[in-house]
Design a binder for these strands. Structure first.
Lengths: 216, 216, 216, 216
DNA sequence: GATGAATGAGCGTTCATTCAT
DNA sequence: TATGAATGAACGCTCATTCAT
């Protein structure tokens, strides 16, 4: 560790600690993460961590908020420009894949924690995950509405599509790790093609249905 | 616990222990799970757990194998019967949603563990997850091939679709928890309609592409 | 430590732990006492202490209850026999001085703790101290009543005398430490002579009053 | 805290620190007291405490000396005027009860510390307590001598009476807390009546003795 | 003179694991 | 076969104390 950096102002130190913690929590999960390691990675002693963040739990919450904010902002910025919804959704998904590729730790922190953590942590994680789904869902909803398909909203409600997209994107983030030549844009494009076209078909009334079970 | 059951044959005891462990690991995650609780839930004393399974780690591996086998079998059985691929995929997805609804613990055990566990555990989890992806991928591949689209395999390779489907299904399993009126079949159907129809479109050459960036 | 004693039954171990803890708490006070030292003195490892008593605080409470019960019983037994009150009081005080001489730790534990401990501990200590005062007070009250002095009860109410006696006895327990030739009986006798005779005088109406301040 | 007061002369600052420390030590006891709290209560930063007093231990010693001096002076001043001994003793006791009522912290600091502190602290506390006993003892001794009872000094030596008085007074200070209508003077008067009259009786040869145990 | 920033060392507590029966 | 009893090794957290400014 670079122990020559000393006497940093409070706000800087705090950010450094949160960034170090993010890495450690993401790599090991909440329970297996050890505060000593976080301190060492941040280049300070353990009491500093407690002086600044108070407890392991509060430190974790700070990490979740940091990750959630960063991701939401990245997605929203990418999807904000005023084009038609499907272009914006594509931009958002591209931003998402960029994000998970470049800030893998943040995504892992948000989506790969063991269940049954403390209430404070569970609430914070749920809020962060809901925030992502809300962003995606809003974009999808606008796309559906612009498709003029209010009557069939039950068939492809935006929430369902948002879960599908986010889940698929999560899984594809792993897939990307094994395909280093793929760009986030290309992955987003392929995902768009499957989900978006499929959704359009459904909105247009083209439905696949299983054959009725043979009469017995 | 029913402490009157004693002197059970080895295989029965072992299965009971693994089932108890599965619940505890799924609820708390590997690190937060406590062997005492597993022993109590299994109705035996802690040394028995060690006598039968050797260590917490080996016990966890046994749980992963149990869950993986159960899920794979359920999926394969559902998708095995000799109909056309898309019907089999739908049956497989239905079986999957049935499985996650009824054996939530097993699915959680396989997909919600904190990262960076020991090598033995990581390997086992990776194998289990790969196994599910392989099942789905095989089905998708057959569907694509039957669609006679060998030439365009790069555009929608089965592996990509399998990741998309499994990730979406994972996320939708959560979505189902908030929509108790949905049946696994209906969810599987909606997912099929989006992914499958979209994929067919793509195979048929209908591609969505972003507009070229405006010339500057 | 005698590490050859092993596998003791639960109740025996528990008593040994409490006895060891009593010594350590009495010697160092609650905060400065270290659980490791208690464990070592009890001849076991630290986790045993927690397995049996749960926490440092609960361990302390157990010690207080043990000391309080022992002292109360010793005093009550000595003062129980059916003679006249002053004889019983003398016997009780003798028993008290015997107790503090022989179980110095217990007395110190009850009366020399730093203030502002946790509520649980404070309550337990208060109860233990009140218990001693109640024993003494009951004896004094009977003596006063037998003295037939109901009307003047305000002047020498039993509670006041009980506090006086217990406080004096506490202080004299220290004094005894510097006078090893004194027996508990002799100390009790001298204390009786001062307090009891003085009280009788007061009951008999013989009051000392300060002279009025000189007119200015 | 009034942070506008700055650059105080050394002696003033030091007294402020000691007074703050006295309160904190009295409320929590030596071990549970935290230097941060003392600094905050004194309205300065922690390094100042160390600059002025050197260490927690030296700070505590300073508090003990301060409390001891204050109490001794109060007692001596009250008991100094040239009347007969019993009047002076009564005045001294009154002053004592005034003191514990008004400077409760100081009395608690001197008499309610957990045992087995460091040698430096133990010595200082012992000295302070001895100082109080010496004051009381001197007064009692003069009273006894004036009673012309040198021959029977063994029966009621002043040291014994001093311990009795101080212990009783300590205990009665607690009793006063539950009787807010009592004045220090009245409590002192009642204590005088019991101890002093009893002592006079003893000096006059009136002794209570237990009946001989029945011949067996 | 005064302080914000920083840490070494220690304590309460827990848990996977094993021994003696 | 089965278990009550026991522990080594960590980990979260705190506090007296000291630099660097």
């Amino acid at each position: 560790m670079d122990r020559t950096r000393k006497r940093l102002p409070r706000s800087v130190r705090e950010r450094e600690i949160v960034e170090a913690a993010l890495r450690v929590f993401a790599r090991h999960g909440y329970h297996a993460a050890v505060v000593d390691e976080i301190a060492e990675l941040a280049g300070i002693s353990k009491p500093m961590v407690y002086l600044y963040l108070g407890s392991k739990e509060r430190l974790f919450v700070a990490c979740v908020q940091h990750a959630s904010r960063t991701l939401t902002v990245a997605f929203r910025d990418a999807a904000a420009s005023g084009d038609e919804p499907e272009l914006r959704l594509w931009r958002g998904l591209s931003a998402f894949f960029h994000f998970v590729a470049e800030h893998r730790d943040s995504w892992v922190l948000l989506h790969r924690q063991a269940p049954e953590l403390s209430a404070a942590i569970t609430d914070e994680l749920a809020a962060a995950r809901a925030s992502v789904l809300a962003e995606v869902g809003a974009l999808v909803r606008r796309g559906i509405e612009e498709g003029g398909a209010d009557a069939r909203l039950g068939a492809v409600d935006a929430d369902f599509v948002a879960h599908t997209l986010v889940g698929a994107a999560d899984s594809l983030a792993d897939w990307m790790a094994g395909h280093p030549d793929e760009t986030p844009e290309r992955v987003a494009l392929r995902l768009m093609n499957m989900i978006w076209l499929g959704m359009r078909d459904v909105l247009d009334g083209e439905l696949w249905t299983p054959p009725p079970p043979p009469a017995e």
